[in-house]
Simulated assay, not measured.
Amino acid sequence: MSGFDSNPFADPVDVNPFQDASVTQAISRTNESTGEYNPFSAAEMGQYSGTTVPAPATSPSQPAVLPTSVEQSTQATAAAAQANLIKQQEELERKAAELERKEQELQNRTTSRDPNTGAKENNWPPLPKFFPIKPCFYQNFDEEIPEDYRRICKRMYYLWMLHSVTLFLNVLACLAYFTADSSKGVDFGLSILWFILFTPVSFVCWYRPVYKAFRSDSSFSFFFFFFVFFFQVAVYIIQSVGIPSWGNSGWISSISMIGYNLGVAVVMMVVAGFFTVNAVLGVILLKLVHSKYRRTGASFTKAQQEFSQGVLTNRTFQSAAASAATSAAQGAFGTNQEN
């Protein structure tokens, strides 16, 4: 009943929670166990020695990778510098080799010229110096023919060599043909004529024009070559056919000899095969030269201009025209005096 006896309208009594008996007892026990701690007191300072432990150079939480990265960067820079030096050395060696090659070419050009006139000394055909006949032409693919046309020009030269060898073999085959059949002396005689005539004529009439055409990009030389070489291919076809009494060991002549002499027929078939190869290669090279010709920008108009300029500047033509004009003038003057 005491709770009901209290006055509810009276002022409340201030209660301090830290004055509770249990709280006061716990605080007193903590103070007794710990006491007042002074880290700078003489008693506490005496417990430590005078040596000082240095702090670690790096934080344990951060790995020390800086020296490794610096070392790798230095090695990469050194490797790059060494590679650059090697590249520069290779470039210098390449330039030195190029200069040496050009110097050698210049020396070859100097030695290939006539010391008296300074003109290029003829080197084809390559005859010995003691031979009474001297070379008639100058030929140097590396010096005179551009690199784009050098390969096809050499092929034309090889075709001419094959043409000459085939004509020589044709003489031997016709000789065997004549020994097997005495009535075939006409073929043997004509084969000798074809070898003596067509070997130098083919060199002058279609090989040298194509050589000059590639050397100086001459439209006139191109047209002259096409005109002559077209007939040369036709002659190859006729020779491979082997019409009797035409001086050619072709397929017809060789097949006709199978029943009479098999050995002679085989020899003649080999030569007929050579003529066939010449015809096929002639057609192929004619197309290749024509494709190269289309890239050079040559034309029939340029060929006419080159022909007219060449004729007008030719000393032989000029001297012949001058002598003809002088003779005509003298004849007209004499006629006037007689009248």
Rank of each mutant, 00 (worst) to 15 (best):
T166A: 15
T166Y: 02
T166W: 01
T166C: 15
L167Q: 08
L167C: 09
L167N: 12
L167W: 04
L167G: 04
L169T: 11
L169Y: 11
L169I: 06
N170H: 03
N170K: 08
N170S: 10
N170W: 06
N170Y: 07
V171Q: 01
V171M: 11
V171W: 00
V171E: 00
V171D: 00
L172R: 05
L172P: 01
A173R: 01
A173G: 14
C174D: 03
C174F: 00
C174A: 10
C174M: 09
L175A: 13
L175H: 13
L175I: 10
L175E: 04
A176G: 15
A176R: 06
A176M: 14
A176I: 11
Y177G: 12
Y177A: 07
F178G: 02
F178A: 12
F178K: 08
F178D: 03
T179E: 10
T179D: 04
T179P: 00
A180G: 13
A180H: 02
D181G: 10
D181C: 09
D181A: 09
D181M: 06
S182W: 10
S182G: 12
S183T: 14
S183V: 01
S183M: 07
K184M: 12
K184A: 08
K184Q: 12
K184C: 02
G185A: 05
G185C: 04
G185K: 05
V186L: 14
V186M: 09
D187W: 05
D187M: 04
D187I: 04
D187R: 02
F188W: 12
F188H: 08
G189L: 13
G189S: 10
L190R: 08
L190V: 03
L190I: 12
L190Y: 07
L190S: 03
S191F: 00
S191Q: 00
S191W: 00
I192N: 07
I192E: 05
L193F: 15
L193W: 14
W194F: 15
W194G: 05
W194V: 05
W194Q: 11
F195H: 04
F195S: 05
I196S: 07
I196A: 14
I196T: 09
L197F: 14
L197P: 02
F198I: 05
F198R: 03
F198V: 09
F198E: 07
F198H: 11
T199F: 07
T199E: 03
P200S: 04
P200K: 00
P200H: 01
P200G: 04
V201R: 06
V201Y: 13
V201I: 14
V201K: 03
V201E: 04
S202C: 09
S202R: 01
F203R: 03
F203H: 08
V204G: 12
V204L: 14
V204M: 15
V204F: 15
C205I: 09
C205Y: 11
C205W: 10
C205D: 07
C205M: 14
C205E: 10
C205Q: 07
W206T: 03
W206E: 06
Y207H: 09
Y207W: 15
Y207R: 06
R208F: 11
R208E: 10
R208M: 15
P209Y: 02
P209G: 08
P209T: 05
P209L: 10
P209S: 09
V210I: 15
V210S: 08
V210L: 15
Y211T: 00
Y211L: 02
Y211F: 15
K212H: 10
K212P: 00
K212M: 12
K212I: 06
K212N: 13
K212C: 10
K212Y: 11
A213C: 15
A213D: 03
A213I: 05
A213Q: 08
A213F: 15
